[in-house]
C-alpha cells in the first residue's frame, strides 16, 4: 500500500460521533436486521469505541445491514451508526476480513462496482451473470446459479430485459475516478488481534 494516502482512524470514526454513544441500544431496537445479527449495532459501536476494530470487522452483522439508516436517524446522541457500519465494511473488505458466510454479499457489492467501473452505469444482465458465476459456479451450485433464470422471460415480456446495458461515453473517466478513489484506504489501528 506504499505511496497510497491514508485516512487516520480518529478522523474516520470521529465524524460518525462514536465517542458520544452511551449504549442505550436504540439503534439495535429499531434495526430491521437485528434478529439476524451476531453482534448488534450498539455492540459494534462499542467495539469501535474500545478500539477493537478487528473484532468488529469480522462480524457477520456488518454484511447483514441493509443500510436503511434507521439507527442513525433515531440515535439520541446523533451517532451515525450507519456510517460506522459503512466504514467497518470498507475496512473489512480492504483487509480481507469478511467472514466466509457473508462472502456472497461482498461478491455482489464488488460485482456491482466492477460493473460501474466498466460501463459507467449498471448493466443488469452482466451484473447478475458475473455475480452468479462468482458466487455459485465455483461450488457448482446450479440451483442458485439458475434461481433467477425463470425471471428472464417474464422480464422480457415486460420489456424490462436488456441484453446490452447502457454504457456512458467517457468510460475512461469512470475508470480514472475509480482508480483515484481506490488509492485512498482506510487506516484502522489493528494492533489488537481478538
Amino acid at each position: 500500500m506504499s505511496g497510497n494516502s491514508h485516512a487516520t482512524e480518529s478522523d474516520v470514526f470521529s465524524e460518525a460521533n462514536v465517542a458520544a454513544c452511551y449504549q442505550c441500544g436504540k439503534c439495535s431496537a429499531g434495526c430491521p436486521m437485528a434478529e439476524h445479527m451476531d453482534l448488534l449495532p450498539n455492540q459494534l459501536v462499542r467495539l469501535v469505541q474500545m478500539g477493537r476494530f478487528d473484532r468488529a470487522m469480522r462480524a457477520e452483522a456488518i454484511w447483514k445491514c441493509v443500510s436503511c439508516v434507521t439507527c442513525s436517524t433515531r440515535c439520541p446522541k446523533s451517532v451515525d451508526c450507519a456510517a460506522v457500519l459503512d466504514l467497518l465494511r470498507q475496512a473489512a473488505f480492504e483487509q480481507g476480513k469478511v467472514p466466509p458466510s457473508r462472502r456472497r454479499t461482498l461478491l455482489f457489492q464488488q460485482a456491482f462496482l466492477d460493473n460501474i467501473r466498466r460501463n459507467g452505469r449498471v448493466c443488469e444482465l452482466e451484473l447478475i451473470g458475473v455475480f452468479k458465476t462468482k458466487a455459485f459456479a465455483k461450488d457448482w451450485d446450479l440451483l442458485k446459479l439458475m434461481e433467477d433464470a425463470p425471471l428472464a422471460p417474464k422480464l422480457m415480456r415486460r420489456r424490462k430485459f436488456h441484453f446490452r446495458g447502457e454504457r456512458v461515453k467517457d468510460r475512461g473517466l469512470v475508470k480514472r475516478i475509480f482508480d483515484r478513489c481506490n488509492s485512498i484506504k482506510l487506516d484502522l489501528a489493528t494492533s489488537e488481534n481478538s
Partner: peptide, 25 residues
C-alpha cells in the same frame, strides 16, 4: 449529459471516497 451511476449501496459500503465521487460527478 453522460451521467454515471451514483454507486448506490455498494459504493458507500466499500469505498467512502467513491461514494462521494460518483454522485459528485
Amino acid at each position: 449529459d453522460d451521467w454515471i451511476c451514483c454507486g448506490a449501496t455498494a459504493a458507500h459500503s466499500l469505498n467512502h471516497m467513491l461514494a462521494l465521487a460518483l454522485p459528485s460527478r
